[in-house]
Design a protein around this nucleic acid. Structure first.
Lengths: 253, 253
DNA sequence: TACTGCATTTCGTTC
DNA sequence: GAACGAAGTGCAGTA
């Protein structure tokens, strides 16, 4: 792991370092007064301002201002970077085809240019996802309701794959739709479509639909009720933020 | 605009600079061998590795590896940052409440620490959005078809708000669904639901549904055709990437 | 490649 | 602050 930094470099020196860095696939950050021009799936122009530009070895480019989590401009992984001198300005260009997209960052003055050498990495272990919620239910089906027996996950239906499919204590088919966080009306529609699809497969068996999520919005609770669907308040394990207070009463009849 | 950089600083010196930077609301980048621990809406742990950490004055924190456009860990705007020494490691902590979230980045060794002073900025002008497409159609309704008269945007229906609503040359109600890019089957379903909803409002009037997008996939064109829906190839202004070739014939009967 | 659905989505607008 | 929907969404998984 090592770092090379140029402080207020002449464009000529910056260009030389950048070209080497892009060739060797190094991570780069550049900070200074620049304009940004983008053309591709959409188009944008950004006037002069101070921004931090990050170029990754995988072809990603990020242009960050002092606000927001999202870069104000970017290029996705897989792009190719070039450095050049244009009109007395240092240009970092990033291009890709399919779709054709081009990003130009023109520096009037470069305050700092840094090239990093990254050695190792370690994998991220994330918990609290929808998949964790599914595992939790497969481990303890009674969290959905006593006597619930899951028989399949991602079971295919005419309306798409159902998160968890099973049967209740009376042997009635049960469709379970999982959401890791508080849900709106779209989840109710989604569940309804699944129930209708399963209903055609098991006519006369009284297919039930249960939405499992930390909570639902008021309108969604009403929708579920109207459509004879049920709700069980449950959060993914460890993702405790949403688990603290299931803030709506359940809509199960 | 100025920059302060420490190269392989002692934790003690880094701590002092960080505390000042957080107090004064400066943008900060830190690079080095670190572990990351996050707990909030979800939870994650990231073992030792070399990462670039960006702290913004608005409370955003980004942890970037050498891959992907998305940070491997982050904290959204509005968080508060703290620096401390823990166990011989330099810790950058970011917290917020509502929802309660915490991010710890512990540096074993700090390769570089930089504090930026950002002076000015300029606004982004983006074109090629769905709203641009809507404006284009309201300006020139004949782009949809000769005689088309828009009467409302975001018109409410039982199935949700319709992008553009109007009437054709024969006075038949027309539902227009806009998409800024090439669309798949889901857009056809969406349009169908709108048409059905409007159809209940205007029975016997032969409501038409038109999908306006740069192009559609083959299967979607077939779906539209089956359901008596129509397609008009049109792109947002300037968003020329998708406009080059409307690559499917239109599905209008 | 196309399509689907999740995401610590983020971000804006509206209520 | 909650809710709703767009995004140059990104991203992983699957057919």
């Amino acid at each position: 792991m090592s770092v090379t930094t140029l402080h207020r470099p002449a464009h000529r020196d910056a260009l030389s370092l950048l070209e080497t860095a892009f060739e060797e696939g190094r991570m780069v950050t550049a900070f200074g007064r620049c304009t940004v021009d983008y053309d591709g799936r959409a188009s944008s122009d950004l006037g002069p301002g101070d921004r931090l530009v990050v170029c990754k070895p995988d072809g990603t480019v990020l242009v960050h201002t002092d606000e927001n989590r999202e870069p104000v401009n970017w290029q996705p992984p897989g792009c190719t970077q070039y450095a050049s001198l244009r009109d007395g300005r240092l240009r970092i260009r990033s291009e890709r085809s399919s779709p054709a997209e081009r990003l130009d960052v023109d520096f009037r003055r470069l305050e700092q240019l840094t090239v990093y050498e990254i050695q190792d990495r370690s994998d991220l272990a994330l918990t609290g996802s929808e998949e964790d919620l599914r595992s939790r239910i497969l481990d303890e089906p009674e969290l959905v309701e006593p006597g619930f027996q899951p028989t399949a996950t991602e079971r295919e239906t005419a309306a798409g794959p159902v998160d968890v499919f099973g049967a209740d204590a009376d042997g009635r088919p049960v469709v379970v739709e999982l959401k890791r966080r508080r849900v709106g009306p779209s989840a109710a529609s989604q569940l309804r479509r699944y129930v209708e699809a399963i209903d055609e497969e098991f006519p006369e068996e009284g297919v039930r639909g249960i939405l499992v999520a930390p909570s639902v919005t008021d309108r969604t609770a009403a929708l579920l009720d109207e459509q004879g669907l049920e709700f069980v308040a449950l959060s993914p394990p460890d993702g405790d933020g949403a688990a603290v207070e299931p803030d709506t009463d359940d809509a199960a009849e």
